[in-house]
Amino acid sequence: MMAAVAAVDVFTGPDAGYLALFSLGPAFACVTGSIRRALLVGVLGLLLCLGVSWHDSLLGTHRAAVAVLSVAGSTAAAALAATIRRRHERELADVRSVAEAAQRVLLRPVPLRAGRMRIAVSYTSAAASARIGGDLYEVVPTSRGTRVIVGDVQGKGLEAVETAALVLGAFREAAPDEKTLQEVGDRLERSLNRRLSGEEFVTAVLAEIDADHTMTLLNYGHPAPLILRSNGAVEFAEPALTAPPLGLAVLGPEGPIPHQVELGSGDQMLFYTDGVTEARDSERTFYPLADRAFLLDQDDPDEALETLRQDLVMHTGGPLHDDAAMLLLRYRADPASL
């Protein structure tokens, strides 16, 4: 840029008055460069300004003095701006580190197996810079079977993360203690009622895997889990009645009624949040989860879930606009096939 200014000034002569434009060099250098680079570009701009002033026989004139002061001032401002930018970058890096640590505590690794169930999980946050969001999941082995929760907190940001932490903490305490899945749900409801206010809520699906691999489900206003049968058939585990999300029980109707799903060898159940089914492409078309369920038909559940996640990202053509959590359960009658 400064070379172009020098060339134009030499070509057009001293009357055009391009000397002050040398200040653009350090001004742009601070946008992405370091403090040192901004100062080096500023010194180079100053030398070019003096050289062109000498060529134009303007050294010692008011015009040259103003141009030199402009370049010097821009260099000082560029160095200050680069200093502030680098400080903000370090602060952002610290925030990301804290967010990643919080995410690891909030969403701990789930067990790879529960009885004859193989488990895989995937989480993609819409807040890519923070890597943290309001979707939640947990798998807790108990003496009564394995209990699962997948949910989605209304809203985004730190408040959503705080609410997700509250739900997960309550579930981790209630799942091993309560006799029935409904009692677990009631305990979550009470915990949220003490914390939430206004119209805040959490959609969630609670599941209990029995010893015979019958799945008992409680759906609190959440998207119904997808079932991929071993023969390739796809269905959704829709509840008979729609129930309100957690945190809105006082508004009625009554809470969800447990319903059961029988899983055979080779069947899979996918729990997910609405960040999956509400993801849109450039033509505003929702992601066709049922049509893409065949991607889960792979030997390794983790690879299958990652393939589905990549297909979801390809559908949107860019970053997701909402958090997307997926938890896959695969039943195998033969333990050797897990």
Rank of each mutant, 00 (worst) to 15 (best):
H55K: 09
F171L: 10
V52N: 05
H321N: 11
V98T: 15
G60N: 06
L188W: 03
V153G: 10
E306V: 09
V105L: 14
A204L: 03
P225G: 06
L196T: 02
T142E: 00
G157Y: 12
S53P: 04
V10P: 00
S197D: 08
M314C: 11
L188G: 05
R85M: 13
T316G: 02
V105K: 03
H55S: 11
G252M: 07
N219L: 06
R63T: 08
G134E: 02
V167K: 13
E199A: 10
H321D: 13
L48F: 13
L188S: 05
T214C: 08
L69Q: 11
V95R: 15
Q268D: 00
G33A: 04
V140A: 00
T163W: 03
E189I: 10
Q268K: 03
T61N: 05
A127E: 15
A164E: 04
I257W: 04
D274V: 13
A325Y: 01
L308G: 10
G221H: 08
S122A: 14
P14S: 12
A20Q: 14
L196G: 06
T214M: 05
L44A: 15
V205H: 08
D274M: 08
A211G: 09
V41D: 01
G145C: 02
G255A: 11
G169E: 04
V139T: 01
D267I: 03
E199R: 13
L44E: 09
F286V: 06
L92P: 00
F201L: 13
A249I: 13
L296M: 05
A6V: 10
T163N: 03
L24I: 14
V66N: 06
A127R: 14
L289Y: 09
L320H: 02
P225A: 08
L50S: 10
L39V: 15
M269P: 01
D302M: 03
A128M: 14
I149Q: 03
E173A: 14
C30T: 11
D135W: 07
Y220V: 02
P176R: 02
A160K: 09
L50N: 07
L46N: 03
T216N: 01
N231K: 08
F11V: 12
L196F: 12
G73I: 00
A243D: 09
E200T: 12
F11Y: 14
V8Q: 12
L107W: 04
A64C: 05
T316H: 00
P301R: 02
M326L: 12
A65L: 14
P111A: 09
A204F: 05
T214H: 07
